[in-house]
Nucleic acid binder design. Structure first.
Lengths: 115, 115
DNA sequence: GCATTATTTCGATAAATGTAGAAATATAGA
DNA sequence: TCTATATTTCTACATTTATCGAAATAATGC
């Protein structure tokens, strides 16, 4: 029972179409250091107050980080939380119980040639 | 945008402590062919009607399968859905964007010695 | 058919969630 | 300071969710 509540909160946060889109978008922009609120809004066409609400929730559970620069706020995915979440799922499904074959999730072409 | 709605539904279903416990329990029991409703109820101490509600939801999004045998209903995780979900997350985080290092999620000891 | 056990359905209710317009706040630059 | 832009807060409301007791349904074995 490794903090089931914690992980269910993460899943709950991802369990909304808009929020999953936000995370996907911010994953894409990770190497750019994330995106400003306005950029996310422009991309996903979500009203400011609604977007803020979603960003707040994602930040609250630890999936996003934010930092202010001048009048802008940059949001980006939190690598550590995401890694931890994936590790949890992986260990539950592929490790502890062996229900999902590793090869189906992380096929060779993912790992080949990577450190 | 590979059916974001579909995946957010899966996460939504896992985004509840009781349901995540149910899935974890059924993952453990996968090699036994799943568990009967009563066994789940006994293990997790959830009132029948509430449990039924959760099982229904998990089945509805495709995370669980069920089959009747005599008066009992056996529930088990759906390997295919789970695999697909893991693959989605893996490809989003480790493949497409490379935000999460593969080695952190699927370290060697998972794959070593497995086909 | 009856008693027993297993599971689902019904009905009700409190709480949480998703959504968004309007107003407020913050910051920068002229 | 004034203006423009960015983001958040406030407020409201409809919808969905979580929960569970009680009643209903299903299947078994006598």
């Amino acid at each position: 029972m490794p903090q089931v509540e914690h992980y269910s909160n993460l899943f709950q946060a991802l369990g909304n179409g808009s929020r999953l889109e936000i995370v996907r978008l911010l994953l894409s922009a990770f190497h750019l250091g994330g995106l400003k609120v306005g950029q996310i809004q422009q991309e996903l066409k979500i009203p400011g107050s609604t977007l803020n609400h979603h960003l707040e929730k994602l930040k609250q559970v630890g999936l996003l980080k934010a930092h202010k620069e001048k009048q802008w706020i940059w949001y980006s995915v939190d690598q550590d939380t995401l890694t931890d979440m994936l590790r949890f799922l992986f260990s539950e499904c592929c490790g502890r119980t062996d229900v999902v074959p590793v090869s189906a999730v992380a096929p060779n072409h993912f790992t080949r040639g990577k450190p």
